[in-house]
Design a protein around this nucleic acid. Structure first.
Length: 205
DNA sequence: CGTGAGATTTCCT
DNA sequence: GGAAATCTCACGT
């Protein structure tokens, strides 16, 4: 698999959210170990006219990375406990990003288990929940405040292009966990993939 | 596997 | 002050 180029992130935020499905999200730790997961669920957050987006009221210290150049990680802390990880898209200054909601573990699974549960061995439920959900995948990948602003085209984090031969069926629904902006069907997921969080609601391409 | 309470930062009204 | 792009734990099935 090949890395996606910088201009991949310059496209419309919903287009990128769909194209990210099937791509691999990779972190190479400084000690040489490698964590990888297949992206199976995303949500798009637009720059304007989107009351659910963190960028809705302009730039703040927390969301500054969203307004920066595309292809970087926007990591935020929420509910007093959890981190969530986004990919910045669109031209600098727009404030668009895609929330990574779920990954299918590919490699470094034992290391993810240690980061998330503090142990190597998992029961069936722990395996299922390893990276199914935005805050869970952050824990499995060791993503926190320090990773906010990390570049996806250099350094520890990379996104590898999806295998074009692997045909996937994309479903979409309204976004999860928000009260406003529910009318936008901007949650995208790979249909019938067991690693997708939550129910498959309004199924359509 | 479903349900429901609790944890507790950041930002806006 | 109050809600938020959520999860864990406890307990019932």
């Amino acid at each position: 698999m090949k890395e996606v180029p910088r201009n991949f992130f310059m496209q419309d935020v919903c287009s990128v959210a769909k194209k990210l499905l099937g791509c691999a999200f990779v972190r190479e730790l400084s000690d040489g170990s490698r964590l990888a997961g297949r992206i199976v669920e995303t949500e798009a957050y637009a720059h304007s006219n989107d009351p659910a987006s963190h960028s809705r009221s302009g730039k703040t210290p927390r969301n500054a990375v969203m307004f920066g150049p595309p292809g970087h990680l926007y990591v935020y802390f929420t509910y007093g406990m959890h981190y969530c990880c986004n990919v910045v898209t669109g031209a600098e200054g727009r404030g668009e990003a895609i929330l990574l909601r779920a990954l299918e573990p590919l490699s470094g699974i034992a290391l993810m288990a240690v980061k998330r549960y503090g142990k190597k061995d998992m029961n069936a439920r722990e395996v299922r929940d390893l990276s199914r959900g935005p805050a869970r995948l952050c824990r499995a990948f060791g993503i926190g405040r320090e990773q906010n602003g990390a570049d996806l085209c250099s350094g520890e984090f990379r996104i590898l292009q999806a295998d074009p031969a692997a045909e996937i069926q994309i479903g979409c629904s309204s976004r999860i966990g928000i009260r406003e902006g529910c009318s936008h069907p901007w949650r995208f997921y790979i249909q019938n993939n067991p690693w997708v969080s939550g129910p498959a609601r309004n199924v359509q391409a």
